[in-house]
Amino acid sequence: MGHHEKQSIVSIIGSVLVIGFYSLYVYRNYIQADMDLLNDFQFWGKSFLYLIPVAIVLQIVIHIIFAIADRIITQEDMPDITDERDKLIELKSIRISHWIFILGFMLAMGSLAMGMKPYVMFLTLISSGFIASLASEVAKIIYYRKGA
């Protein structure tokens, strides 16, 4: 298994852990105590805004730990170049995640159009972002195995 495939697997695990723990934290500390918060736009705004830096920092930390562990186990350096094939695979996987997020966005707007509660829209948006990011990493693994 190549470094890029391993990195994608680490990203998937990282995303699942970050979203999982963040959702659990928000649910236990805020939503459980006051269910009305689910319809509070300010709460959702803050939740989204805090999630972004938290996710970025944790993903960086997870990748640093992975790089160190991988170096110790395999005794090989990570490739320090990004070549044309890497860029092509990156573009193809971004295209997939883009379409999944657009679909999620449409579903989120659809939920509002059907008169559902605003929290359904926000949950759909978060879920589509999460699924889009997972799909992008899965696509990368498939493309790397396929060749491009």
Binding site: G2, P79, I81, D83, R85, A148
Partner: peptide, 8 residues
């Protein structure tokens, strides 16, 4: 390029 690209 990377070795993986040459392999591919």
């Amino acid at each position: 390029v990377t070795r993986q690209t040459i392999v591919a």
